[in-house]
């Protein structure tokens, strides 16, 4: 099937999924830091995070990707030169996951901030009044409820991010799109291969929607919905 290119494409899918997962982990870290900075009382932290989220929303992903991939390459090598190190090659995987993590961290900042604000303040105060430490309040009260409120926004960001990984083929990551490019050139059947990977992307997004929908219902057990 597919002139024997199916295993190569599925191998590319593995790298697409790996990039998505690592980017998501980085984005969650940026998102959590951003959300806590945005909710903190420090004015400096608020301004920094506002600048971060505004900057990301104002630029296309592809431009940020190119800026970080090529700009970062030269910047790091200038630093390495000064430190007397040899040539350091940033590979597309590292540049790609860092950039996507950085971009979607900005969107997750807003998601997480909203999720934390959706929890009644009295619950955290009650936890503290019972003598729990701040970490215990976070672990037992804030975090479990925050996940429930964050899932819808999180799902959207995850779907947009999987699709954004296709752009990494432009900076030379060996992902599914790159494999389809190679197979198309070799067989002269580009439509077949691009349609194949489109179907695979659709399958991945469908599974994600179903899985995260299940998770949302799981975390919302015991929450009554208004019946309309």
């Amino acid at each position: 099937m597919l002139h024997g290119y199916l295993p190569a494409i599925l191998d590319g899918l593995r790298s697409t999924l790996l990039v998505s997962a690592v980017s998501l982990a980085i984005a969650c870290v940026f998102g959590l830091i951003g959300a806590s900075a945005k909710l903190s009382a420090s004015r400096m932290a608020n301004i920094l995070v506002d600048a971060y989220t505004t900057l990301i929303r104002g630029l296309p992903e592809l431009v940020l990707l190119l800026l970080i991939f090529y700009g970062g390459q030269i910047m790091i090598n200038k630093l390495a030169d000064r430190a007397g190190l040899g040539y350091i090659d940033i590979n597309p995987f590292i540049a790609g996951t860092m950039t996507l993590g950085f971009i979607f961290g900005a969107y997750l900042t807003e998601t997480f901030r909203g999720a934390i604000l959706a929890i009644p303040r009295g619950q955290m105060e009650a936890g503290l009044a019972y003598g729990m430490t701040r970490v215990q309040v976070l672990r037992r009260i804030t975090f479990p409820q925050m996940i429930r409120h964050a899932i819808p926004g999180f799902t959207n960001n995850w779907l947009v991010m999987i699709k954004a990984t296709a752009l990494l083929s432009i900076i030379g990551l060996d992902d599914m799109v790159h494999r389809a490019n190679l197979a198309s050139a070799a067989t002269r059947q580009p439509f077949t291969f691009y349609a194949t990977i489109a179907v695979i992307y659709l399958a991945v997004t469908t599974v994600s929607i179903l899985g995260l929908g299940w998770l949302e219902r799981r975390f919302s057990l015991g929450v009554r919905k208004a019946e309309l």
Binding site: L159, K163, A164, T165, A166, L167, S169, I170, V177, A180, N181, S184, R188, Q189, P190, F191, T192, Y194, A195, I197, A198, Y201, L202, T205, T206
Partner: peptide, 23 residues
């Protein structure tokens, strides 16, 4: 809408620009 929102724009563009030449 489901198909077009569920697949990357880059792949859609490739399908039209490079892909259709196959037929």
């Amino acid at each position: 809408t489901y198909v077009f929102r569920g697949t990357p724009l880059l792949v859609q563009l490739y399908m039209i620009y490079f892909g259709l030449a196959q037929f």
